[in-house]
Nucleic acid binder design. Structure first.
Lengths: 109, 109
DNA sequence: GTTTGTACTTTGCATTACAAGGTACTGCTA
DNA sequence: TAGCAGTACCTTGTAATGCAAAGTACAAAC
Protein backbone atom coordinates (compact mmCIF):
# COMPACT_ATOMS: atom_id res chain seq x y z
CA UNK A 1 0.00 0.00 0.00
CA UNK A 2 1.32 3.40 -0.97
CA UNK A 3 1.21 5.67 2.13
CA UNK A 4 -1.51 8.29 1.85
CA UNK A 5 0.93 11.11 2.49
CA UNK A 6 2.88 10.15 -0.59
CA UNK A 7 -0.22 10.59 -2.72
CA UNK A 8 -0.66 14.22 -1.73
CA UNK A 9 -0.22 16.53 -4.66
CA UNK A 10 -0.08 13.53 -7.00
CA UNK A 11 -3.60 12.15 -7.11
CA UNK A 12 -4.97 15.27 -8.76
CA UNK A 13 -2.57 14.90 -11.67
CA UNK A 14 -3.27 11.17 -11.88
CA UNK A 15 -6.98 11.78 -12.14
CA UNK A 16 -6.42 14.39 -14.84
CA UNK A 17 -4.34 11.80 -16.68
CA UNK A 18 -7.11 9.18 -16.46
CA UNK A 19 -9.71 11.65 -17.67
CA UNK A 20 -7.47 12.79 -20.54
CA UNK A 21 -7.58 9.27 -21.97
CA UNK A 22 -11.36 9.24 -22.13
CA UNK A 23 -14.39 10.73 -20.44
CA UNK A 24 -15.07 8.86 -17.22
CA UNK A 25 -16.74 9.17 -13.82
CA UNK A 26 -15.68 9.00 -10.19
CA UNK A 27 -16.54 5.42 -9.42
CA UNK A 28 -14.76 4.15 -12.51
CA UNK A 29 -11.73 6.32 -11.83
CA UNK A 30 -11.31 4.70 -8.43
CA UNK A 31 -11.41 1.27 -10.07
CA UNK A 32 -8.89 2.24 -12.72
CA UNK A 33 -6.49 3.65 -10.16
CA UNK A 34 -6.72 0.41 -8.20
CA UNK A 35 -5.92 -1.58 -11.35
CA UNK A 36 -2.98 0.73 -12.00
CA UNK A 37 -1.41 -0.17 -8.66
CA UNK A 38 -2.49 2.80 -6.54
CA UNK A 39 -4.35 0.60 -4.08
CA UNK A 40 -7.84 1.43 -2.87
CA UNK A 41 -8.36 5.18 -3.08
CA UNK A 42 -11.26 6.07 -0.76
CA UNK A 43 -14.40 7.68 -2.14
CA UNK A 44 -13.88 10.43 0.41
CA UNK A 45 -10.72 11.19 -1.54
CA UNK A 46 -11.94 10.88 -5.12
CA UNK A 47 -15.16 12.85 -5.02
CA UNK A 48 -13.93 15.91 -3.13
CA UNK A 49 -10.95 15.96 -5.49
CA UNK A 50 -13.24 15.91 -8.52
CA UNK A 51 -15.24 18.78 -7.02
CA UNK A 52 -12.02 20.71 -6.43
CA UNK A 53 -10.85 20.16 -9.99
CA UNK A 54 -14.25 21.28 -11.25
CA UNK A 55 -14.09 24.41 -9.12
CA UNK A 56 -10.59 25.12 -10.43
CA UNK A 57 -11.89 24.90 -13.97
CA UNK A 58 -9.73 21.88 -14.84
CA UNK A 59 -12.59 19.51 -15.63
CA UNK A 60 -16.31 19.73 -16.37
CA UNK A 61 -19.09 17.21 -15.82
CA UNK A 62 -22.01 15.87 -17.80
CA UNK A 63 -24.68 13.84 -16.06
CA UNK A 64 -25.64 10.65 -17.89
CA UNK A 65 -28.07 7.91 -16.93
CA UNK A 66 -26.87 4.37 -16.32
CA UNK A 67 -28.64 1.04 -16.82
CA UNK A 68 -27.10 -0.52 -13.78
CA UNK A 69 -27.42 2.11 -11.07
CA UNK A 70 -27.75 5.82 -10.39
CA UNK A 71 -26.72 8.46 -12.92
CA UNK A 72 -23.02 9.09 -13.52
CA UNK A 73 -21.09 12.32 -13.76
CA UNK A 74 -18.83 11.99 -16.77
CA UNK A 75 -15.83 14.32 -16.63
CA UNK A 76 -13.70 15.74 -19.44
CA UNK A 77 -10.67 18.05 -19.45
CA UNK A 78 -10.95 21.78 -20.13
CA UNK A 79 -8.09 23.73 -21.68
CA UNK A 80 -7.05 24.74 -18.18
CA UNK A 81 -7.08 21.07 -17.25
CA UNK A 82 -4.83 20.21 -20.17
CA UNK A 83 -2.34 22.85 -19.08
CA UNK A 84 -2.55 21.63 -15.53
CA UNK A 85 -1.92 18.07 -16.70
CA UNK A 86 1.14 19.16 -18.68
CA UNK A 87 2.45 20.99 -15.63
CA UNK A 88 1.85 17.91 -13.45
CA UNK A 89 3.83 15.70 -15.81
CA UNK A 90 6.66 18.23 -15.77
CA UNK A 91 6.60 18.45 -11.97
CA UNK A 92 6.47 14.67 -11.64
CA UNK A 93 9.48 14.31 -13.89
CA UNK A 94 11.37 16.84 -11.80
CA UNK A 95 10.46 15.08 -8.57
CA UNK A 96 11.12 11.55 -9.73
CA UNK A 97 14.43 12.57 -11.28
CA UNK A 98 15.56 14.16 -8.02
CA UNK A 99 14.47 11.24 -5.85
CA UNK A 100 15.90 8.59 -8.15
CA UNK A 101 19.12 10.55 -8.34
CA UNK A 102 19.27 10.70 -4.56
CA UNK A 103 18.43 7.03 -4.02
CA UNK A 104 20.72 5.96 -6.83
CA UNK A 105 23.71 7.86 -5.51
CA UNK A 106 23.37 5.91 -2.33
CA UNK A 107 24.92 2.85 -3.94
CA UNK A 108 27.98 4.70 -5.29
CA UNK A 109 28.72 6.09 -1.87
CA UNK B 1 10.10 24.24 -8.49
CA UNK B 2 8.55 21.03 -7.24
CA UNK B 3 5.16 21.87 -5.64
CA UNK B 4 5.29 21.55 -1.87
CA UNK B 5 2.30 19.21 -1.82
CA UNK B 6 4.21 16.73 -3.95
CA UNK B 7 6.95 16.56 -1.35
CA UNK B 8 4.60 15.37 1.38
CA UNK B 9 5.51 11.94 2.61
CA UNK B 10 8.66 12.02 0.50
CA UNK B 11 10.96 14.48 2.22
CA UNK B 12 11.27 12.29 5.30
CA UNK B 13 12.55 9.38 3.26
CA UNK B 14 14.86 11.66 1.32
CA UNK B 15 16.39 12.98 4.51
CA UNK B 16 16.87 9.44 5.80
CA UNK B 17 18.61 8.66 2.52
CA UNK B 18 20.96 11.63 2.88
CA UNK B 19 21.80 10.72 6.47
CA UNK B 20 22.36 7.08 5.51
CA UNK B 21 25.24 8.14 3.27
CA UNK B 22 27.04 9.94 6.08
CA UNK B 23 26.36 11.70 9.35
CA UNK B 24 25.20 15.21 8.65
CA UNK B 25 23.25 18.12 10.11
CA UNK B 26 20.16 20.12 9.22
CA UNK B 27 21.77 23.07 7.53
CA UNK B 28 23.91 20.85 5.33
CA UNK B 29 20.97 18.59 4.48
CA UNK B 30 19.06 21.56 3.11
CA UNK B 31 22.05 22.47 0.91
CA UNK B 32 22.42 18.92 -0.35
CA UNK B 33 18.76 18.64 -1.22
CA UNK B 34 19.02 21.87 -3.18
CA UNK B 35 22.00 20.50 -5.09
CA UNK B 36 20.03 17.32 -5.79
CA UNK B 37 17.29 19.27 -7.55
CA UNK B 38 14.70 19.53 -4.79
CA UNK B 39 14.78 23.32 -4.81
CA UNK B 40 15.01 25.38 -1.67
CA UNK B 41 13.54 23.40 1.21
CA UNK B 42 12.64 25.86 3.97
CA UNK B 43 14.26 25.57 7.40
CA UNK B 44 10.76 25.51 8.84
CA UNK B 45 10.42 22.23 6.96
CA UNK B 46 13.79 20.62 7.68
CA UNK B 47 14.11 21.15 11.41
CA UNK B 48 10.63 20.05 12.48
CA UNK B 49 11.08 17.00 10.26
CA UNK B 50 14.37 16.14 11.95
CA UNK B 51 12.71 16.49 15.36
CA UNK B 52 9.89 14.23 14.21
CA UNK B 53 12.32 11.60 12.94
CA UNK B 54 14.20 11.79 16.22
CA UNK B 55 10.98 11.37 18.20
CA UNK B 56 10.05 8.38 16.02
CA UNK B 57 13.38 6.81 16.84
CA UNK B 58 14.59 6.86 13.23
CA UNK B 59 17.61 9.06 13.81
CA UNK B 60 19.69 10.26 16.75
CA UNK B 61 21.76 13.40 17.17
CA UNK B 62 25.21 14.24 18.46
CA UNK B 63 26.09 17.84 19.17
CA UNK B 64 29.47 18.88 17.80
CA UNK B 65 31.21 22.24 17.88
CA UNK B 66 32.03 24.04 14.67
CA UNK B 67 34.88 26.43 13.85
CA UNK B 68 32.73 28.59 11.67
CA UNK B 69 29.53 29.07 13.64
CA UNK B 70 27.25 27.61 16.28
CA UNK B 71 27.34 23.93 17.21
CA UNK B 72 25.86 21.40 14.80
CA UNK B 73 23.55 18.48 15.47
CA UNK B 74 24.96 15.56 13.53
CA UNK B 75 22.38 12.89 12.82
CA UNK B 76 22.82 9.19 12.15
CA UNK B 77 20.34 6.39 11.40
CA UNK B 78 19.13 3.99 14.06
CA UNK B 79 18.04 0.46 13.19
CA UNK B 80 14.47 1.71 13.11
CA UNK B 81 15.61 4.41 10.72
CA UNK B 82 17.25 1.85 8.45
CA UNK B 83 14.02 -0.15 8.32
CA UNK B 84 12.08 3.03 7.69
CA UNK B 85 14.45 3.92 4.87
CA UNK B 86 14.04 0.49 3.27
CA UNK B 87 10.26 0.86 3.52
CA UNK B 88 10.44 4.31 1.95
CA UNK B 89 12.42 3.02 -1.01
CA UNK B 90 9.88 0.23 -1.46
CA UNK B 91 6.96 2.67 -1.24
CA UNK B 92 8.65 5.07 -3.64
CA UNK B 93 9.19 2.29 -6.15
CA UNK B 94 5.53 1.32 -5.88
CA UNK B 95 4.38 4.90 -6.34
CA UNK B 96 6.71 5.78 -9.19
CA UNK B 97 5.91 2.54 -10.99
CA UNK B 98 2.18 3.24 -10.76
CA UNK B 99 2.50 6.87 -11.88
CA UNK B 100 4.89 6.11 -14.72
CA UNK B 101 2.64 3.27 -15.82
CA UNK B 102 -0.33 5.63 -15.82
CA UNK B 103 1.45 8.46 -17.64
CA UNK B 104 3.06 6.05 -20.06
CA UNK B 105 -0.18 4.34 -21.04
CA UNK B 106 -1.46 7.70 -22.10
CA UNK B 107 0.60 7.59 -25.27
CA UNK B 108 -0.63 4.15 -26.35
CA UNK B 109 -4.16 5.52 -26.74
C1' DG C 1 -38.40 -6.13 1.57
C1' DT C 2 -33.72 -6.98 2.42
C1' DT C 3 -29.32 -7.24 0.63
C1' DT C 4 -25.62 -6.23 -2.79
C1' DG C 5 -23.48 -3.38 -6.05
C1' DT C 6 -23.33 0.99 -8.12
C1' DA C 7 -22.74 6.07 -7.65
C1' DC C 8 -22.37 10.56 -5.50
C1' DT C 9 -21.97 13.85 -1.24
C1' DT C 10 -20.62 15.83 3.18
C1' DT C 11 -18.24 16.60 7.76
C1' DG C 12 -14.38 16.42 10.48
C1' DC C 13 -9.68 14.82 11.26
C1' DA C 14 -4.55 13.86 10.78
C1' DT C 15 -0.47 14.73 8.49
C1' DT C 16 2.90 17.65 6.80
C1' DA C 17 5.42 21.49 4.02
C1' DC C 18 6.11 26.15 4.75
C1' DA C 19 6.11 31.25 6.01
C1' DA C 20 7.50 34.16 9.51
C1' DG C 21 9.80 35.26 13.38
C1' DG C 22 13.17 34.31 16.96
C1' DT C 23 17.82 32.82 19.25
C1' DA C 24 22.73 32.50 19.10
C1' DC C 25 27.66 31.84 17.71
C1' DT C 26 31.78 33.29 14.54
C1' DG C 27 34.32 36.50 11.94
C1' DC C 28 34.79 40.71 9.53
C1' DT C 29 34.65 45.78 9.32
C1' DA C 30 34.46 50.33 10.84
C1' DT D 1 32.71 49.10 20.77
C1' DA D 2 28.96 48.47 17.28
C1' DG D 3 27.02 46.41 13.30
C1' DC D 4 26.53 43.10 9.74
C1' DA D 5 26.68 38.59 7.12
C1' DG D 6 26.87 33.75 7.32
C1' DT D 7 26.05 29.72 9.84
C1' DA D 8 22.93 26.86 12.66
C1' DC D 9 18.85 25.72 15.19
C1' DC D 10 13.92 26.30 17.07
C1' DT D 11 8.82 27.57 17.43
C1' DT D 12 4.11 29.06 16.13
C1' DG D 13 0.47 29.17 13.11
C1' DT D 14 -1.42 28.22 8.47
C1' DA D 15 -2.80 25.85 4.19
C1' DA D 16 -3.36 21.83 1.44
C1' DT D 17 -5.08 17.38 1.00
C1' DG D 18 -5.97 12.22 1.63
C1' DC D 19 -9.18 9.65 4.25
C1' DA D 20 -12.61 7.66 7.64
C1' DA D 21 -17.27 7.68 8.54
C1' DA D 22 -21.75 8.49 7.63
C1' DG D 23 -25.48 9.55 4.61
C1' DT D 24 -28.45 9.53 0.12
C1' DA D 25 -30.26 7.07 -3.82
C1' DC D 26 -31.03 3.86 -7.78
C1' DA D 27 -31.17 -1.10 -9.87
C1' DA D 28 -31.13 -6.05 -9.67
C1' DA D 29 -31.31 -10.41 -7.22
C1' DC D 30 -32.94 -13.28 -3.61
Amino acid sequence: MIPSQMLKGILGGCILTVISREETYGYEISQKLRQMGFGNIAEGTIYPLLLRLTKNGCICATLKASDTGPARKYYSLTNTGKEELAQFQKDWLELSTAVNHLIGENSHG
